[in-house]
């Protein structure tokens, strides 16, 4: 399939959300892929030694999730220029989380458009992480892709994993 990647973003536009129930494998895979073998991300006893109930998610993983949501919506040519992440609550394997986002500003540039996006991850109504992201959308470019990674693939159901 081919989709136009050029967006006409407006303030208030909502990006497709996605949701996932975290598994121990998710925590382990992220730790391994980032060279972080910290036992508290996969070992019950290590987490208890820190006074925590169970192995917990590395907060930086939310940055990757936010970036993934941005690129899935904005298209593969979009450039994520900055992210301001804040962590509000811990997450553990078994938690079900939802990632939501809304465009908060749109600014024309000489060679494209800059959008600011407010993103949030929640579990059971509790805010886990938030992010203010800045994305540069090219003015023109290759307006096709051979995957679901384009704005045109956004569905009402959002992206589920």
């Amino acid at each position: 399939m081919r989709h136009q990647t050029a967006l006409n973003p407006r303030e208030g536009d909502v990006l497709p959300p996605f949701e996932k129930t975290l598994t121990p494998v998710d925590l382990m895979a992220y730790g391994a892929a980032t060279w972080d073998w910290y036992a508290c991300h996969y070992n019950d006893a290590a987490a208890r030694d820190l006074g925590l109930s169970a192995p917990f998610v590395d907060g930086q993983m939310w940055g990757a999730w936010f970036a993934r949501q941005l690129r899935a919506y904005c298209g593969p040519q979009a450039f994520v220029g900055g992210m301001k992440l804040r962590y509000h609550a811990m997450c553990f394997a078994g938690d079900h989380v939802e990632c939501r986002a809304v465009i908060t500003s749109v600014s024309p540039l000489a060679d494209g458009t800059e959008i600011e996006v407010s993103q949030q991850i929640e579990k059971a109504g509790t805010r886990v992480a938030s992010c203010i992201s800045v994305v540069i959308l090219p003015a023109t470019g290759v307006a096709e892709t051979d995957s679901e990674h384009s704005a045109g693939k956004a569905t009402e159901e959002g992206i589920r994993t």
Partner: peptide, 21 residues
């Protein structure tokens, strides 16, 4: 890394797909 964070965009794994972009 892309696999671990569930990002299946081909531009991270496929040179030809990335060149098309």
């Amino acid at each position: 890394f892309a696999i671990a964070v569930g990002d299946t965009d081909p531009i991270y794994v496929d040179d030809a797909a990335a060149r098309r972009q």
